[in-house]
Design a protein around this nucleic acid. Structure first.
Lengths: 111, 111
DNA sequence: AAAATACTCAACCGATCGGTTGACTGTTCC
DNA sequence: GGAACAGTCAACCGATCGGTTGAGTATTTT
């Protein structure tokens, strides 16, 4: 099931941070790996998970692998969640807290 | 991290199916477990994961545990995804396929 | 041609996952 | 009180997860 892979990929904060970087533009594997205190091989695995879930695409250009975001699976996930949101009254604060917290607790390389 | 738990909980189709059932109204543990070919204990664990992620709440009423949906974490997840959707052009078809497929492949108790 | 670069691959590790079974704790029903 | 019921808990199992290290494969660079 596609949603399994999508949500699983999103359940790891390292991978979410990678997506955050990718949202600013394409990045090489090395660039994606740099901010994290882990081996390149480990980061490479994370990237493969994102790729497997279809969340990113990879273009091998010479010896560098350029990664960029790919939309559809994330959209499907969002739509799934949206489908359920209708049943409750949204409380926007929780999310902002979660997003802000995540941005702060990890380096915030983006202003 | 809250989003870890939210997305992890959503990454299992059994749990997503439980949420689908819950979207129709509160259900007991037994009712939630019934559709699945697994032990009650296993289903109980799934419910505990959903509860741990804050996606559902439980009211112990006598010997019965009544579960109902809880909104915020799912909303935070949706908002996270929405945040990224902006960067791409949405393609609604993929999602409908995914949702439809999931509904079909498992019983589709909701018309 | 040799050396450095940018990665992947494979093997391994401990921790967690999803499932099982069996024993247990409380209700509710008779 | 005793039996049936609703559900949890604990121990265990194989599979997967997230990480490591070491070796291997292309591609640049010099």
């Amino acid at each position: 099931m596609a949603l399994d892979a999508t949500f699983h990929a999103l359940s790891d904060r390292t991978r979410r941070a990678m997506l955050r970087g990718l949202a600013e533009g394409p990045r090489t594997v090395g660039e994606l790996a740099a901010p994290f205190a882990m081996s390149l091989a480990a980061a490479s695995k994370h990237i493969k998970v994102l790729e497997g879930a279809g969340l990113i695409e990879r273009a091998v250009k010479g010896r560098v692998h350029l990664c960029r975001l790919s939309a559809e699976p994330m959209h499907a996930g969002a739509e799934w969640l949206r489908h359920y949101e209708k049943f409750w009254n949204a409380r926007l604060d929780a999310l902002e807290a979660a997003l802000a917290e995540e941005d702060e607790t990890k380096g915030s390389r983006r202003t």
